[in-house]
Design a protein around this nucleic acid. Structure first.
Lengths: 119, 119, 119, 119
DNA sequence: GTGGTCTAGACCACG
DNA sequence: GTGGTCTAGACCACA
């Protein structure tokens, strides 16, 4: 379910974080779904439980999941703040691309292609 | 010319790096322009010359500038690799946005608005 | 009557505790009213009777209810200690707000608005 | 500067967290001030550096401070979100107090007294 | 068994 | 020397 890459420059806890964010965004994990327990996932990925817990803690503080002591961690969905942040990143990226002479039409074509794949 | 923010999470050398990349992308620095010397810039920004050195070394290895021993460092322009990398980032970002239900039309509108500002 | 939220960060027994405190404060439960039996409520909320037991024990030790062996648990009313504690919380909260530059007038206006709603 | 109470039910990292929040709110710590280093404070309070670091990390994510690797942690000021949260707490607290029959006038008098102390 | 906190000690990147 | 990440292993409250 989650793939760690030790050559990746991102810290492990963030790879876990990003993986779950991605899966929730993509609808692979749905609201109410139960995440694997901290110890379970740590065992499976062969890393320390504290590392998983840090990822879960951050996911909770960002509103992706809710953790209940003694019960487990459960998916809440994609928080609104995420969409806003992605849009801000989108704008700055588009700005960079346009300033290096990339044609606006090419970007639009790429969006439409992505939209077809997604539909 | 270059603005450093010590509160910025990025290391200093990378802020320098990003500043130059941005200025070359934006056409503020043009092919053939001479960059300030390592010592000069370190003095101006009140930081360690090693930090500037590291930024210049990286800029050269990415193809943004060419350093000539005894002469200085000169702008080459925006390398193709940069445009490709930005496009790859663009695709993954669009993918994330579409998968969370953002309308493709909204993204296209944002591009057109950015294009007008740029033109 | 009592609504449990398993996503709530508070432990279950405390949600039960808070619910009863709130209902007694609000006058929904009046002095002399009989609370549901531990078993009854545990069944209704689909949780462990121990959890209810703990909530009732705490309610009693704080003076909100009185338990009579073989008869049940009965509402006593809002204990003075509660009002004092809330007032203490109020003072520290006001202090925090004033020290960050919040205008005393704004706080007073909020109280008056709350008072109108309550009346 | 910071006082830990091991009988306090709050976890240590949160006592540290609350202490700094309070000092920043009260203007004891001003924008730009340098916090003690993680190791320094851990030594002084006789607790583990990780515990301090967790507090600092949280302070940063809430916008109270900015941490720069290799330089230290610096005060930013009281984030807007704090004032909003305190106001929300204020409203619910006022609601509880009014519903238990506390007179609105008494609350207002307490605010005015606090305001005099503060002025 | 679950999440949450804490300690003790290690290593890394940065400047 | 600084913050940041990670491990190994402990103890706690809750259900």
């Amino acid at each position: 379910m989650i793939h760690l890459d030790h050559r990746d420059r991102r810290p492990i806890y963030q790879q876990v974080l990003d993986s779950f964010r991605e899966q929730i965004r993509a609808g692979i994990l749905l609201e109410g779904d139960k995440l694997p327990s901290v110890r379970e996932l740590a065992m499976e990925l062969a890393i320390n439980p504290n590392t998983i817990q840090r990822a879960y803690r951050e996911l909770e503080s960002e509103g992706w999941i809710a953790s209940v002591a003694g019960k487990g961690s459960f998916v809440c969905g994609t928080p609104d703040s995420d969409r806003l942040e992605l849009l801000a990143q989108f704008d700055t990226l588009v700005d960079k691309l346009l300033s290096t002479g990339t044609d606006a039409g090419e970007l639009i074509r790429r969006i439409q292609k992505g939209d077809d794949d997604h539909a």
